[in-house]
Design a protein around this nucleic acid. Sequence first.
DNA 1: ACGTGCTTGTGAAAGCATGCACAAAGTGGG
DNA 2: CCCACTTTGTGCATGCTTTCACAAGCACGT
Lengths: 230, 230
Amino acid sequence: MTSRPPRPRERGIPEATVARLPVYLRALQALQGRGTATVSSEGLAGAAGVNSAKLRKDLSHLGSYGTRGVGYEVEYLIYQISRELGLTQDWSVAIVGIGNLGRALANYGGFGTRGFRIAALLDADPDVVGLTVASLDVRHIDSLEEVVRSKGVSIGVIATPAGSAQGVASRFVEAGVTSILNFAPVVLNVPDGVDVRKVDLSIELQILAFHAQRRADGDGQAERMGLEVT
Amino acid sequence: MTSRPPRPRERGIPEATVARLPVYLRALQALQGRGTATVSSEGLAGAAGVNSAKLRKDLSHLGSYGTRGVGYEVEYLIYQISRELGLTQDWSVAIVGIGNLGRALANYGGFGTRGFRIAALLDADPDVVGLTVASLDVRHIDSLEEVVRSKGVSIGVIATPAGSAQGVASRFVEAGVTSILNFAPVVLNVPDGVDVRKVDLSIELQILAFHAQRRADGDGQAERMGLEVT
DNA sequence: ACGTGCTTGTGAAAGCATGCACAAAGTGGG
DNA sequence: CCCACTTTGTGCATGCTTTCACAAGCACGT
C-alpha cells in the first residue's frame, strides 16, 4: 500500500525529528503572529535555530507540505504539525507536588498553545491541600486514582521531592496513566508501554559546567598542570 | 581518596556520554548514601536506567577506574566523575526572572550536589526587587553587569517571560557569561563560544502527546498483539 | 601456585542523525 | 509558450551512538 499525495505518511518519524517539531511549531506561531503567510525552509530554520536541510528533511517525514519555489504556508504547516503532535485533541494533565515548582507549572498559562488542560493539582501535605492555586483546589494525593478516572487524566506531572516520586509514578501507572513528565531528580522505574520524560535542572547545570571547564582549560594557557582550582 | 596511579585520559568525551555522567553521579551518590562501597556496571546501569555496556563505554572515556572481577569503587568513581564534570570547583549562578519559576529554582536547595552557588537573583519588576527569596535579596536587572563582575558569575539562568529572554541573554553575554540555561520558550541567539541549554516544559509535553497519540492510534485496532513503542 | 569465576574494557557491527549538493517542481516575467 | 529563478525534497556520504560479544584481567579458594 503506497501513500497518496495528501496522505500523512506512514508511521516512523525519527525521535530526533519529533523533538524538534515543537520548536518549529513555536517558530511558526511567532511568524503567524507577525502576519507572515508563507516562509521558506531557510527562514523557518533560522527562526528555529537549525540547519535548513535538517528542517526540510524533518518536515518531509510528515508529508510534502511545501511548494517548490515558494516555501511553506504558515497556517497550513501549523495545522499539520499540530495534528502530528496530537495537539488537535485535548490532553488532561494532573500535577502532583504543589511546592514552588508545582505552583510555577500550574501558573504557567498557555501551555505552549492549547492542547493541554490542567485538570487537577495534588499534594500530600495537609497544609497545602485545600489551597487554591491557579484557580484550582489542591486535592489530597489519596484521591489520585479517583481524579485520574473522573477527569480523564492522560498525562501525569511529578513535581514532588525525590523520595516520593517513584511512589507517585507507580500510582499513576496503576491508574492507567501512560505518559509521565518527571521533574524529580530520580530515575523512575515503570513498566514497558509507559512513556517517561524527565526534566532535570541540576543535570543541565552540570553539563554546562563540563563545557565551561573544558573551555577554561584549553582556552587560557595552563592546559596541563595537575589540578587547579579558582 | 587513594593514590593516583591512573591517567586522566585525553579530552574528547562524546556529548551523549557527558549528558549521562550526571545521571551516573546521582545514582552513585544514592548508593553511597545506602552504604554501598562497590558496584558493578550491571548494578549501576540498573540504577541509572541504561544498558550496562553503554555505561562501561561511557566510563571508559574517563579512564580505567574499575576493577575486573569486582566492579567500581563508589567513592572513587564519584570523585572522578565530579572532577570530570567540573564540580570540584564552585560555579556562581545568577537567576534572572523571579516569578514562580525563578523562586522555585532559587529554593531548589542542594543543586544536585554542591558545586553550584546561587550568587544573585535579578528581576525587572519594581514590586519584586527588594524581596528576599531563599535568603537572597532580589536586585534590579540593571545591576546585572555589576553583579556578574563582583560575584564572578559564570552561569546565567533565564527564567523570564519569553519576550525578555533574548535581551537578558545578550546582556549576560556582553558581561562575559558564556554558559546560559534558558527556561523561556524562545530560541536564543548568541555568538559562537557561548553555550546555551534550554529546558522547556511545553516541548516535553508535546513530545509526550505525540507518543501517547501514536500509542492510542494503533492500540485499539487489531494492529499487533504485543505492541510497544519507545 | 594455579585454576575458577566474575566483571571490565573494547573491537566490530549495526543503527541513527546530520548536512551537502542537486534534480525536480513550481512561479512569474517576457 | 518558454525561460530564468527560486525553493523543496532527497540520495548519498560522513560521523556519531548504541549494542553485542569476548578477550583480558583481577580476586579468591584450594
